[in-house]
């Protein structure tokens, strides 16, 4: 349990900011090129290691690059520079329930979403009862998901995602929609994960949650890594940066 689960090595990611973004042929032809743009560095030379078996938090203000970093971890974006290496199977929960089809029932969506997340039909079938029990929507499992409340939606989505059973779980602030009871259930599940020696990387704006759950925390500001280290210290520096002249 002393190894490294994820190594982020000098990762930089830029986006093109278009001054006049209309993806039409006319604008391309008029200007003789596709667009006028400048590069915006959403992540700038970020490096850190996530120890295996730890719960790792990412904090920072809006737009500081947290979700971008998670997407790079999840193979959705590809960094311009630097490398990300992970040791073990990785699963990301950036938005639960993406890929739900609103007209299909909860049951059909469990199978659909499970396979989008990379589970085989056999795996889903064997975990189906567990998924439904964890989500707490048993009564509505054969209803189309468009009739679900937004919390139920998240519960079902989360229940599927957590049953992918990865070695490294990457979570963007997806829990804020669930009620108190469900949030506690999720935290217990994260704790189980940790006991099983698995790694969790999470983003949250609730410092209470981060402090309670994370061993180590990284603080991003405008794409740069300001500080990485034990939870309490990093959170303190982050909070004190928010209150100038304090």
């Amino acid at each position: 349990m002393t190894g490294t689960a994820v190594r982020v090595d000098q990762v930089s990611k830029s986006f093109r900011l278009y001054h006049e973004r209309n993806q039409t042929l006319k604008s391309a032809i008029m200007r003789g090129r596709t667009s006028v743009h400048e590069d915006f560095w959403a992540l700038d030379d970020v490096s850190f290691d996530v120890p295996e078996g730890s719960t790792f938090g990412l904090i920072g203000s809006n737009g500081s690059g947290k979700s971008t970093l998670l997407k790079c971890l999840a193979n959705i974006y590809f960094p311009n520079k630097g490398t990300i290496t992970h040791f073990g199977k990785i699963a990301a929960m950036l938005e639960v329930g993406s890929g739900f089809h609103s007209e299909l029932s909860g049951r059909e969506n469990v199978f659909l979403n499970g396979s989008i997340l990379g589970m085989s039909k056999k795996e889903i079938t064997s975990k189906f009862d567990e998924i439904v029990a964890f989500s707490g929507v048993e009564q509505f499992i054969d209803q189309p998901v468009k009739n679900y409340s937004s919390g139920m939606y998240v519960r079902l989505g989360f229940a599927i995602a957590i049953n992918v059973d990865p070695d490294i779980l990457v979570v963007d602030e997806v829990l804020s929609v669930g009620d108190q009871e469900f949030q506690e259930k999720c935290f217990l599940k994260f704790a189980d994960f940790r006991k099983a020696g698995k790694t969790v990387i999470l983003v949250s704006h609730s410092m209470g949650t981060v402090e309670a759950m994370c061993d180590r925390v990284a603080w991003l500001s405008h794409g740069e890594l300001k500080k990485v280290g034990p939870a309490a210290g990093t959170i303190k520096s982050y909070l004190s940066s928010l209150t100038p002249e304090a």
Binding site: L104, E108, F111, L112, S115, S120
Partner: peptide, 18 residues
């Protein structure tokens, strides 16, 4: 292939629902 099948079924089932 399993995902491919499921996405195909999603469209087929969703298309004429209701």
């Amino acid at each position: 292939r399993e995902l491919l099948l499921n996405l195909t079924l999603r469209e087929i089932k969703g298309k004429y629902k209701r």
